[in-house]
Amino acid sequence: MVRVFGEVAALYDDVRPGYPEAVREMIEDYGGAPESIVELGAGTGKGTELLVGLGAPLTALEPDPRMAAVLRAKFPTVEVLETTFEGWQPYGEPGLIACAMAWHWMDAGTRNRKAFDALAPGGTVALFQHKFAYADRAQDRAITEVLTEIDPKVADRGDHWVRDDVTAAGLWADVEERRLTTYPVYPKQRYLELLQTFSPFLRHTPDQQRRALDGVGAALDSFGGSVTLELRTSLVLGRKKA
């Protein structure tokens, strides 16, 4: 599944939202300016766009060659390695290891330890992601009903699962979670394109995908043809004691 997004790399890069500049400011406020950065599961660079603003040499790990191709084209100064985090052989000790919207794709039994061991003493881990919700509860119910009918097993990890995962590892000092919420408006077609970039959609059959698009499209028509998201952005920070 970590390579399923390559099927829609261009669409993913077009419709997935980036991250507010405030996230970069929070990272810098917490850990200072790093000497070097490693980004895990970089995809097409939604998180990379934020991280390059820190002004440090950046190495991005991305296992899917189709996603990596988009990433290289957008950020020619970034070193892109086509590898999983588990297969990565660290060299040097980065001052910052970051991951945007991909921590759940890393091996749950080893991700904290591998990141901790790779970091320089005093270095920072920064894990940020969006949780997609809806500002209008009636829209939330209507869309959720359509998607649940097609896939009743869609998992919800909860708003604070990354913080809980990092804390439970027992490795990191000064663990913090910082949050902000924005409310982007997606016209119907744009939202249907966004829907096509999520793994629960991509893992289904073409017939199930069509039913999901038709059902959500009809629901949005009943609400005037657009949806206002409640985009909950979280940033979890931890420190490797010097």
Rank of each mutant, 00 (worst) to 15 (best):
A218W: 00
H160L: 11
T167P: 00
A168F: 06
E145W: 08
D156M: 08
D164I: 02
D165G: 03
P200D: 04
D140M: 09
T182H: 03
A142L: 05
Y134W: 14
L202K: 01
Y134N: 01
L194Q: 09
Y186W: 13
Y134T: 06
Y183F: 12
S226D: 12
D140F: 12
T205N: 13
G215R: 10
L195Y: 03
S226C: 11
V175K: 08
L195N: 02
G215F: 12
Y191F: 15
D164Q: 15
L220V: 05
G224D: 07
R190K: 14
V162F: 07
R157G: 14
D156Q: 10
R137N: 07
Q189K: 10
G225K: 06
S226A: 14
F198R: 07
L213R: 14
Y183W: 12
E176R: 15
Q209W: 04
I143S: 04
G225C: 04
L192S: 09
Q208H: 11
D159W: 10
R157D: 09
G225V: 05
Y134R: 08
L192F: 04
T181N: 06
Q209S: 02
S222T: 11
G217F: 10
A219I: 09
V146R: 08
D159K: 09
F223I: 03
G217R: 08
L147V: 14
L220K: 05
T205M: 10
F223P: 01
L202P: 00
T144R: 12
S199G: 03
L171I: 08
R179F: 05
V154M: 13
W172K: 04
T182I: 15
P206R: 09
H204C: 03
Q208S: 15
S199W: 03
G217K: 10
P206K: 10
A135G: 11
R190S: 10
D174I: 02
R190V: 02
D164K: 11
R203C: 00
I143R: 04
V162T: 12
R137L: 13
Y186T: 04
W161T: 09
D207W: 09
D136H: 02
Q209I: 10
E177I: 13
R157V: 01
V146I: 11
Y191N: 04
Y186P: 12
A169H: 01
L192M: 07
R179N: 07
H204N: 07
V216L: 06
A212C: 08
G158P: 00
R190G: 01
R163I: 05
P184A: 01
T197L: 05
E176G: 05
E145Y: 02
A155E: 14
A212M: 15
L147E: 12
R211A: 13
F201M: 01
L213P: 00
A135S: 11
H160D: 15
W172A: 05
V162A: 05
L180P: 05
H160W: 02
G217M: 03
F223Y: 15
G158D: 04
V166I: 14
L192V: 01
G217V: 08
V185M: 05
Q139G: 02
V154R: 15
Q139M: 13
D221Y: 08
T144P: 00
R190Y: 00
D140V: 02
P206H: 09
G170V: 11
G217H: 10
V166F: 10
D159E: 13
Y186H: 08
G217E: 07
V162S: 03
E176F: 03
A219K: 08
V216E: 12
